[in-house]
């Protein structure tokens, strides 16, 4: 019987996975979504530290590959910052980030009524990743001359109030597990660091949260869903949680059955020998 497990057509497993992921999207099951202490603490970090008028960097450093996990996080966390009255300066050092910066700018204008140039700004792509962040830390005015749309930054009241990175209260980075942003930004005295990352990057960034170098840290689509629940605005991440849970349950089943099959087959071969 266990040998037959090895002969199952893998396409059958794919079909089962597709059904389990797609079905809850069409007919939500409503599985409970407990909110982790980490996400609650991350929410509180913004709730307690950000006051009206505080300047906040919002790093939008992800490409379409990470959109499913990070776009809901961006909308939830960015919306929280907007509700707190923070003045948001968005930037990106990953080529694909411009798309999401522009999209979120539309969200800030339409859903939160923020005024571009006064309440928030979109900065253009800056090459060099860590080198770009070093330039932001040491000379942000020298690095950026125009905004995301090619207009001169000197025409915006918000930009004219900024003299350096030290004017900012918090740096919120929504990105796939890079620690290259944390190394330069941790040099700015008094700047709080907050990170939303993909699930596969959790193990890279978790030590920085555990050591207290970051005040907030949420992970993956689940982190986005938990944050949506805390802000009271459900979105794509919450709708996907049933699919996520069933998908994980299936993977666990496959791993258990697979290992059991391997062990039983090996034992069978040993007894034959």
């Amino acid at each position: 019987m266990w040998e037959k497990l090895n002969q199952i057509d893998v396409r059958i497993l794919y079909v089962i996975m597709v059904i389990l992921v797609v079905f809850p999207l069409l007919k939500p099951i409503g599985l409970p979504l407990p909110i982790s202490t980490q996400t609650k603490n991350s929410y509180q970090a913004i709730e307690e530290n950000i006051k009206e008028g505080d300047l906040v960097f919002l790093g939008v450093d992800f490409s379409p590959l990470q959109e499913a996990e990070l776009w809901p996080q961006l909308v939830a966390v960015g919306g929280h910052l907007a509700n707190k009255g923070a003045r948001i300066v968005m930037l990106h050092v990953v080529p694909g980030g411009f798309r999401y910066e522009g999209r979120f700018a539309d969200v800030l204008k339409s859903e939160y009524g923020l005024e571009y140039g006064v309440d928030f700004l979109c900065l253009p792509f800056s090459a060099g990743r860590e080198a770009a962040f070093e330039a932001i830390v040491h000379d942000i005015k020298g690095l950026y001359k125009v905004d995301l749309y090619g207009e001169s930054l000197t025409g915006y009241p918000l930009w004219n109030e900024i003299s350096s990175a030290k004017d900012f209260k918090m740096f919120v980075e929504i990105a796939d597990a890079p620690d290259w942003w944390l190394r330069p930004m941790s040099q700015v005295p008094g700047l709080l660091l907050w990170n939303g990352t993909v699930a596969s990057g959790a193990s890279t960034m978790a030590p920085f949260y555990q050591s207290g170098q970051m005040c907030g840290f949420i992970v993956g689509m689940a982190g986005g869903a938990e944050y949506e629940a805390l802000t009271g605005k459900t979105g794509l991440a919450t709708g996907a949680m049933d699919s996520q849970s069933l998908g994980h349950a299936l993977i666990i089943l496959f791993v258990v059955v697979g290992n059991l099959g391997y062990y039983m087959t090996k034992r069978g071969n040993a007894s034959v020998n």
């Binding site: 597709v18 992921v21 996990e69 699930a199 596969s200 996907a240 998908g247």
Partner: peptide, 15 residues
């Protein structure tokens, strides 16, 4: 965590 990421990728495409 990587499995979670991959399931999320597929869920995003399905959405």
């Amino acid at each position: 965590n990587t499995v979670m990421s991959r399931i999320s990728l597929f869920t995003g495409r399905a959405q």
